[in-house]
Simulated assay, not measured.
Amino acid sequence: MAAGLARTRVTRVRWTDASGEDSAAPQVSRREDVVAREEPLEIRIGGTSWSVTMRTPGDDFDLVAGFLVSEGVIAAPSELMSLRYCAGFDEHGRREENTYNVIDAVLGRGAIPPDEAGARHSTTTSACGICGTTSIDAVGKQSRFDVAGDDIRVDADLLASLPDALREHQALFDRTGGVHAAGLFAASGDLLCLREDVGRHNAVDKVVGWGVREGRLPLRGTILQVSGRASFELVQKARLAGIPILAAVSAPSSLAVDLAKESGMTLLGFSRGQSFTVYTRPDRIL
Score class of each variant (00 low, 15 high):
residue 194 L to S: 11
residue 213 R to I: 10
residue 184 L to H: 09
residue 202 N to D: 02
residue 207 V to C: 14
residue 214 E to R: 11
residue 205 D to W: 07
residue 205 D to I: 09
residue 200 R to T: 15
residue 194 L to M: 14
residue 165 A to T: 13
residue 186 A to T: 12
residue 163 P to R: 07
residue 202 N to G: 04
residue 174 D to P: 01
residue 215 G to W: 04
residue 169 H to G: 00
residue 182 A to N: 06
residue 186 A to R: 14
residue 193 C to W: 10
residue 202 N to P: 01
residue 179 V to W: 13
residue 205 D to P: 05
residue 209 G to C: 05
residue 173 F to V: 00
residue 213 R to N: 02
residue 172 L to A: 07
residue 211 G to R: 05
residue 173 F to C: 00
residue 204 V to H: 07
residue 181 A to N: 08
residue 174 D to G: 09
residue 194 L to R: 14
residue 180 H to C: 14
residue 180 H to W: 11
residue 177 G to C: 08
residue 207 V to Y: 08
residue 210 W to A: 13
residue 215 G to D: 03
residue 214 E to D: 05
residue 214 E to Y: 00
residue 188 S to K: 02
residue 199 G to W: 00
residue 196 E to C: 05
residue 203 A to S: 10
residue 186 A to Q: 12
residue 188 S to I: 08
residue 163 P to G: 04
residue 188 S to L: 05
residue 178 G to L: 15
residue 175 R to L: 13
residue 210 W to C: 06
residue 167 R to I: 09
residue 215 G to P: 01
residue 186 A to P: 04
residue 167 R to K: 08
residue 211 G to L: 03
residue 209 G to E: 00
residue 200 R to Y: 13
residue 204 V to M: 07
residue 194 L to I: 15
residue 168 E to A: 13
residue 197 D to S: 06
residue 213 R to T: 11
residue 202 N to T: 01
residue 204 V to Q: 08
residue 188 S to R: 05
residue 190 D to W: 12
residue 182 A to K: 11
residue 185 F to R: 08
residue 193 C to Q: 14
residue 172 L to K: 01
residue 183 G to L: 04
residue 171 A to I: 00
residue 163 P to S: 09
residue 203 A to F: 11
residue 168 E to T: 10
residue 216 R to Y: 05
residue 171 A to S: 07
residue 203 A to R: 09
residue 163 P to M: 13
residue 192 L to Y: 12
residue 196 E to R: 04
residue 171 A to H: 09
residue 189 G to H: 04
residue 202 N to H: 01
residue 180 H to E: 13
residue 165 A to H: 10
residue 194 L to N: 08
residue 210 W to F: 12
residue 185 F to G: 07
residue 163 P to C: 03
residue 181 A to G: 15
residue 164 D to N: 12
residue 185 F to Q: 03
residue 199 G to F: 03
residue 187 A to K: 12
residue 189 G to A: 06
residue 203 A to L: 05
residue 214 E to M: 10
residue 178 G to F: 12
residue 216 R to C: 01
residue 211 G to C: 03
residue 166 L to G: 04
residue 181 A to Y: 11
residue 192 L to A: 10
residue 216 R to E: 07
residue 176 T to D: 06
residue 179 V to F: 06
residue 215 G to E: 08
residue 189 G to L: 06
residue 187 A to Q: 09
residue 164 D to M: 06
residue 205 D to H: 15
residue 164 D to Q: 10
residue 201 H to E: 13
residue 191 L to I: 14
residue 163 P to N: 04
residue 199 G to R: 03
residue 175 R to K: 07
residue 215 G to L: 03
residue 208 V to M: 03
residue 206 K to G: 02
residue 167 R to Y: 12
residue 204 V to T: 11
residue 202 N to I: 06
residue 175 R to Q: 15
residue 208 V to N: 00
residue 215 G to R: 00
residue 184 L to F: 05
residue 197 D to K: 07
residue 181 A to R: 05
residue 203 A to K: 03
residue 185 F to S: 08
residue 168 E to C: 02
residue 173 F to I: 02
residue 212 V to L: 10
residue 190 D to E: 15
residue 190 D to K: 13
residue 168 E to R: 13
residue 187 A to P: 06
residue 174 D to L: 09
residue 187 A to I: 14
residue 195 R to Q: 14
residue 192 L to V: 13
residue 206 K to C: 05
residue 202 N to F: 00
